[in-house]
């Protein structure tokens, strides 16, 4: 190239000043484009604050009567009272224990059954049709039946959580193990492993992150069933506190109950998410 040769002959090449780097447009609104974690956090906080602010404003402006819409301050006061006299902790503990027991029973039974019918077609043929059928029966409709069966004590709450959770879990876990790439199983077999070893050393670890997600999602659903059970027949628990408050038109306590249930659910969900990230670092 003549130009290049000239420049070389003239000694140190004179470079044209680099053109100003054109600014990239901020990509806040572009399909799937990532944003800064800080931006994300700010937006999230603003959005949440707007929700609270909207509520507060609506209550202050008396858009609705106080017994329909209490102010955030009312709810806060009711929270402080309930915390002081201990009912908040007692109710939260009662609900927490129920969901832990009900969800654990369901999970302990659903895991092996789901894994079994996800890996053996014969087992699938035995179990899937009935599970599929029962799954579409609304768990709420079982409430009266469960009371007839086991009374109104703790086992009834567990049973409702179980009915609402178990059948979904079985089918989701089945799907989780079905999705394990066949190549992984083949590798196990070509290494001379027996089915049981392949199941333990290949299928389970491969499906584990998805199964963990299944548990996380169904735990969220289990909260709904817990509250359903407590609304109908219970002498404590967050659901029960809502029913009592309704009787006395203590709307702020109803709000409190709903918010605490939401918070507890959120905390458990985030805890599981975090634990999952730790357990399955490789799955990214």
């Amino acid at each position: 190239m003549a130009g290049a040769a000239d420049q070389a002959a003239a000694g140190a090449p004179r470079r044209a000043p680099a053109p100003a780097r054109p600014k990239r447009k901020r990509k806040l609104f572009q399909l799937y484009s990532p944003i800064q974690p800080r931006t994300y956090l700010i937006i999230a906080i603003l959005s949440f604050a707007a929700l609270l602010g909207g509520w507060w404003l609506a209550a202050e402006l008396d858009l609705a009567k106080d017994i329909f819409l209490p102010t955030p301050a009312d709810v806060w006061r009711s929270a402080v009272d309930a915390a002081k006299d201990g009912t908040l902790w007692d109710d939260a503990r009662a609900s927490f224990v129920r969901i832990t027991i009900g969800f654990s029973i369901s999970t302990v039974l659903a895991l092996p059954i789901g894994i079994l019918i996800g890996t053996y077609r014969a087992a699938e043929a035995v179990i899937e049709p009935s599970v599929d059928f029962i799954r579409y029966m609304p768990a709420v409709a079982f409430v009266p039946l469960t009371i007839v069966w086991v009374g109104v004590d703790e086992p009834q709450k567990w049973l409702i959580i179980f009915i609402g959770t178990f059948f979904q879990q079985v089918l989701l876990v089945q799907d989780n193990v079905k999705r394990v790439p066949r190549e992984y199983v083949d590798i196990g077999h070509t290494l001379g492993m027996k089915d049981r070893t392949v199941l333990r050393r290949v299928v389970l670890p491969a499906a584990a992150p998805a199964i963990w997600d299944t548990l996380r999602i169904t735990l969220g659903w289990a909260w709904t069933w817990l509250v359903v059970a407590e609304l109908v027949a219970a002498s404590d628990g967050l659901g029960h506190s809502i029913v009592v408050a309704q009787r006395f038109f203590q709307t702020e306590t109803i709000f409190l109950g709903i918010i605490v249930i939401g918070l507890l659910g959120l905390i458990m969900d985030q805890a599981m998410k975090l634990a999952g990230k730790r357990l399955f670092r490789w799955a990214e």
Binding site: P181, E183, Y184, D186, I187, H189, T190, L191, G192, V202, P205, A206, A208, F280, W282, A283
Partner: peptide, 20 residues
């Protein structure tokens, strides 16, 4: 008559276990 350790296999995809 079935898979065995006398025959090693390398596939095109999903060849390694991602958790190991």
């Amino acid at each position: 008559v079935g898979p065995g350790r006398d025959r090693g296999v390398v596939f095109q995809t999903y060849t390694l276990f991602p958790w190991l």
